[in-house]
Simulated scan of single mutants.
Amino acid sequence: MRPTDRKPPMSLTRPHNRVTFNKVPEPTWAFWVIKVLATTVGETAADFLSTTLNLGLTNTTIVMGALLAVALVFQFRSRAYTPALYWVAVVLISVFGTLITDNLTDNLGISLVVTTIVFTIALAATFIVWYARERTLSIHQIDSTSREGFYWLAILFTFALGTVAGDLLAEQLNLGYLASVGVFAAAIGLVAVAHFVFKLNAIAAFWIAYVLTRPLGASLGDLLSQAKADGGLGLGTVGTSAIFLVAIVGLVIYLSVGERRTLRAATGAREARIGQTDTVGAHEE
């Protein structure tokens, strides 16, 4: 079979919905570590900006919303997964998700129980519409503008839901930050066991764990940053945010280097296959 006889790739068969390479990373150990770090930064950075710097919830939400919009524009315009772009968007959406819930509870006086129910419904509705349109919720197939839009909307709701769930457990139910960290870590462990031992569907396991890492990171952030009198370790929002941001930057650099190596290897293999195909075609002629 000559090269011209082959069917075009899927990216050429859907002209009305730009298809690219998969736009999100594989859920490796580094993915989950950065995710927890990002959720912790989302909690502490929101408190730092709105309280420590006295920007207030409204001004902080506007500023972070604008930054998130810019980050998502670059993310959507990219043709493939780029670690720096992706994780900047995740950190910003983590902060923004925290600010949304803080506005609802602090500025509007809506209870944590109500906001937990609302964000649960919003996330479920996102998944239902996403699946109805795309027939998949897999993060391995975020390869079109439509799927990427659903993905980031789901990510926003997971951060918001995780924030209110963490606050509900640690503060309103008076469980405390340390105990909350233990509860959510144990819950994630149970999801892992359910997937690897009892064969829970991989997509369901991923999204359940993704939601649970948000309150885990938020509780961890509060544990480290809040004053000892309030049940924390007293590191403050500045110190905690700085430590975790440095860790995130280091891991993103590590992933970026690995991504370049993988891309070079894939490009070399693809060029080798093309060369072999051309050689076979020349012999057939």
Results as ranks from 00 to 15, higher is better:
L99K: 04
L255E: 02
A227C: 13
I188V: 05
S111Y: 01
L255P: 00
V91D: 03
L212C: 04
Q276P: 10
T279P: 14
I203Y: 03
L37F: 14
A89V: 03
H195W: 12
S219V: 08
G217H: 05
V197R: 02
S146H: 12
V252L: 02
I128V: 15
M64D: 08
R264D: 14
I274E: 15
S111M: 08
G65T: 03
V118S: 10
M10L: 14
L92H: 15
G275A: 11
V246L: 15
E171N: 14
A247N: 03
I208T: 06
A71S: 10
T237M: 09
V191M: 01
W207Q: 04
D230P: 02
I139W: 09
T277R: 07
V164L: 00
S94Y: 08
A66P: 11
P27Q: 01
L161R: 02
T267Q: 06
N59T: 15
F157H: 14
A229R: 13
T136D: 09
I248A: 02
F76E: 09
A209W: 09
A242V: 15
E285W: 05
M64Q: 13
G268L: 10
I208N: 07
L85Q: 06
Y81L: 01
A266D: 12
T20G: 04
T277W: 15
R147S: 09
G182V: 00
K35F: 15
T158D: 00
T60E: 07
F119V: 12
R2K: 07
A165Y: 08
L175D: 08
R147I: 11
A242S: 12
T28F: 04
D47G: 11
T13S: 15
S50C: 13
V36F: 08
I208S: 02
M10E: 15
E271S: 09
